[in-house]
């Protein structure tokens, strides 16, 4: 059996709207992945530390507040500093197209906007993790 994909679902920033993060966490778990949910109000430092400790292959960030342009670059920088560039980073939430393009330039593998299907997210993670394995 293939080892289970390990995913950290994280909710950075001050926003408490965790419906999306929780639904995604459950869907990934139902798809057979090992999911760690950080809970609310995580700083980029907390998320990177959790990712390191839990030895995850994927970090999924849920951001609805518009603070992605402050949070994501900081987190990507920390990942690089710790030599964790191989961790797949996904961002979900209210991310305008032009910001999504910028985030991808920083190394974010995919941005899922409102209406994205759970199946598409699961499929993306499976194929991306297979490629980097």
């Amino acid at each position: 059996m293939e080892p289970r994909i390990r995913v950290l679902v994280a909710k950075p920033g001050l926003d408490g709207h965790d419906r999306g993060a929780k639904v995604i966490a459950r869907a990934l778990r139902d798809a057979g992945m090992e999911v760690i949910y950080t809970g609310l109000r995580q700083t980029p430092e907390m998320i990177v530390n959790a990712a390191l400790q839990e030895d995850v292959q994927v970090i999924g960030l849920s951001i609805l507040s518009g603070a992605h342009n402050a949070i994501v670059p900081r987190m990507m920088e920390l990942l690089r500093e710790k030599g964790m560039d191989d961790v797949l980073v996904l961002v979900g939430g209210i991310i305008p197209d032009e910001d999504a393009a910028e985030l991808k330039k920083l190394g974010v593998a995919a941005v899922f906007q409102p209406g994205a299907s759970l199946e598409a997210i699961v499929d993306f993670i499976r194929s991306a993790v297979k490629q980097t394995a």
């Binding site: 001050l14 603070a67 402050a70």
Partner: peptide, 10 residues
Amino acid sequence: ATAEGEVGKC
């Protein structure tokens, strides 16, 4: 410090 990037957004 935690207000960075969130001021006036929502």
